[in-house]
Design a protein around this nucleic acid. Sequence first.
DNA 1: CCTACCGATCGGTAGG
DNA 2: CCTACCGATCGGTAGG
Lengths: 197, 197
Amino acid sequence: MEPSITLTRKEQVIRMAAELFREKGYAASSMRDLAQKLGIEAASLYSHIKSKEEILQNLCFDMAAEFRKSLEEVEKQKGPASEKLRKGIIGHIQVMAKDLTASAVFMNEHRHLSQPYLRQFLLLRINYINRFKDIIEEGINSSEFKESIDKKLAVMTLFSSLNWMPQWYDPKSNIVPEGLGQQLSDMLVNGLKKPKA
Amino acid sequence: MEPSITLTRKEQVIRMAAELFREKGYAASSMRDLAQKLGIEAASLYSHIKSKEEILQNLCFDMAAEFRKSLEEVEKQKGPASEKLRKGIIGHIQVMAKDLTASAVFMNEHRHLSQPYLRQFLLLRINYINRFKDIIEEGINSSEFKESIDKKLAVMTLFSSLNWMPQWYDPKSNIVPEGLGQQLSDMLVNGLKKPKA
DNA sequence: CCTACCGATCGGTAGG
DNA sequence: CCTACCGATCGGTAGG
């Protein structure tokens, strides 16, 4: 028996909502738009979900859990900081690539969460970012990275780049998530400049 | 006579709108919210602006013009690609730093422009990005940069990083736009890794 | 999953 | 810049 690929109706609603939120943004997406995409009446949505925001909560926190899980795997491993960084980047891209639509929503629409969810979400995010910062710091302490680098700038550059990918990365292109992660980490670690021959 | 720093009422409306759009997003910001920030009635806004979207158009296209102007200055200059890149980055950051609020709106809310404005805006943006890509290509052709680098990835990483800055850059911090641009371009060109001694 | 409907709020206009 | 107001649309509920 292979695992079922049948989505529950609730999951279907959430998937369709993710597409809609990605296209138009959360606030500009109406429950009537969503219902239409599913071929039902707006009122019928509420048999599956409690509210519009519950959908956003599901999308944001599910993605956050995936990112966290991926990073935890990387942290367990031994090796130089540059290697950990590379693996963390590849893991992040792999998680995104599994669902670019949800990733885009996670990234662009989380601010429409109400309290206390928003606060919770931001705590998860800052924790995740800080763990990448720790990897960079580790590389500085071990003299693998320059001591002159600005850790905050480095980690924000990395994050910006990762988070922006859903906007331009085409999963149907030849480049596979591992390859993209490899190239990004190579660029950040080694730079654009040709080493002196 | 020093130049007047008095804003027309229309400019005041647009400034306040920028703050509102940045905080809550365009779609979630109501004209009544905006009126309240200005201490007037919603209907009174329409003596100064034609529509909610006109405000967004002003914000997006004014910023786009500033970015364009900055890049044109850089393109006129001679020098190696890494130097042009550095100047382009610093210029971009300086433009953003002059109005971080408008920059954030430019970056996050332009998709709410209606046609044909949206199309126009996206053309300006792709043009701007391509001109940075040309600088990178110039560096590859002159053997200053590695031929193995993925131009698209490089330019998207740069752009992601620049565009994300309004979300974390604190203009009251010690680091001045030139310094930030210098560090970012150094990181991208030379990488995180310590050169072999 | 539907019909029928609610109160609230939206962007915007008329007329002063 | 205000009062008064418009039609449209919003998220969501009642009851089946």
